[in-house]
């Protein structure tokens, strides 16, 4: 395939995006070429600005525009409750529920010796000292329900045990509004394990 040099470079750059292959990259490239210069500059600026202005909260590790994120600096939030998640995007998902009003702690990963991720990489000592110095009474562990997420939850449970806090694991089970018949076997069996009295 013969491309003009700058188009080639643009397509190449766009294929780095997750979920974007050669064809989608080409479509986006031609879309951009069709835009006005101002629009393209605005799009590029939005990317650069996001990169420059967004960092991680010093306290909890979620996305923040200043040293403290909007959750940690919000005095109306319930500071007895802490939810531990793997990724910053998990915070957004939990926020969308509108159900949770406590604080967060983002690990930026899960224990995975194969990827060289141990307790040090997750900076778990910082989590422990944070809990020690705060009024947190319950820690909800919301790591992913897979092998690595479960091991991380198990490790955290042991680690937090000596502190006088209640440690809970988020429940697993059926998607609400769905039919039992469409649930996969493993989800259903975990839902059975996690049943509760009504």
């Amino acid at each position: 395939m013969v491309y003009p040099g700058h188009l080639k470079k643009l397509v190449e750059a766009l294929t780095r995006f997750p979920g974007i292959g050669q064809k989608s990259a080409q479509r986006i490239a031609f879309y951009l070429l069709g835009c006005s210069r101002e629009d393209v500059v605005a799009i590029a600026r939005a990317m650069v600005d996001a990169k420059d202005k967004l960092g991680f909260c010093q306290t909890c590790g979620s996305l923040a525009e200043t040293d403290l994120c909007i959750y940690c600096s919000d005095s109306k939030r319930d500071n007895n409750l802490l939810c531990v998640v793997q990724e910053p995007r998990d915070v957004l998902v939990l926020e969308r529920t509108g159900q949770y009003s406590g604080l967060y702690h983002v690990l930026h990963g899960a224990l995975s010796p194969l990827d060289g991720i141990g307790p040090e990489e997750l900076k778990l000592d910082r989590l422990v000292s944070r809990i020690r110095e705060s009024e947190i009474r319950e820690v909800i562990i919301a790591t992913n329900p897979n092998v690595e997420g479960d091991a991380t939850a198990g490790y955290l449970a042991r680690l937090l045990n000596p502190l006088s806090v209640r440690v809970t694991r988020i429940a697993f089970g059926l998607p609400v509004g769905g039919d039992i018949e469409y649930a996969d076997d493993l989800t259903l069996s975990r839902a059975l394990d996690g049943r509760r009295v009504i």
Partner: peptide
């Protein structure tokens, strides 16, 4: 098993308390 084996290879020479701490969550599953 893969994760645990990988971890075991890195534990040689560490203290037994630390070893148990790191292994236990994997042992459980």
């Amino acid at each position: 098993l893969q994760q645990r084996n990988n971890l075991l290879k890195k534990l040689y020479g560490r203290g037994s308390r630390q070893i148990n701490e790191l292994l236990e969550p994997w042992d459980e599953t």
